[in-house]
Amino acid sequence: MDAKTNSSAPETSPPVIHPAVAPLSYLLGTWRGQGEGGFPTINSFSYGEELHFSHSPSKPVIGYTQKTWKLSSGEPMHAESGYWRPKPDGTIEVVIAQSNGLVEVQKGTYSAEEKMIHLQSEIVGNASKVKEIRRCFQLVDGNLCYDVQMATNTITLQPHLKASLKKL
Rank of each mutant, 00 (worst) to 15 (best):
T65F: 04
T68E: 04
H52E: 14
E36T: 15
H18C: 08
G29L: 05
G101H: 11
R32H: 14
E93H: 13
R32N: 13
D89N: 15
S72N: 07
F45A: 09
F39D: 01
G35A: 06
A97L: 13
H78R: 01
G48A: 13
S58D: 14
T41K: 15
W69C: 11
E75R: 07
G90W: 00
S58L: 09
F45W: 12
S73I: 00
E36M: 12
A79R: 07
S73Y: 03
P86G: 00
G35T: 05
I62M: 02
H55F: 02
A22L: 14
N43G: 11
H18M: 07
S56Q: 13
P19Y: 03
P60Q: 01
A20H: 15
P86W: 02
L102N: 14
R85P: 01
S54V: 01
L27E: 08
T41S: 15
Y26F: 15
P40N: 02
H78Q: 02
S99P: 09
K59Q: 13
H78I: 00
A20N: 15
L71I: 10
S44K: 15
H18G: 09
Q34E: 14
P19D: 04
G38A: 08
G35P: 10
Y64E: 02
S73T: 12
N43F: 11
S81M: 13
H55S: 02
V21Q: 01
H52R: 14
T68P: 07
R85I: 11
N43A: 15
V94K: 02
V61G: 03
T68Y: 02
F45D: 10
P57L: 02
I96S: 11
Y26T: 12
V94H: 01
S54Q: 10
A79V: 04
R85S: 10
P60I: 05
E36I: 14
P40G: 04
T41D: 15
V21E: 06
G101L: 10
N43W: 08
G33D: 06
P76C: 04
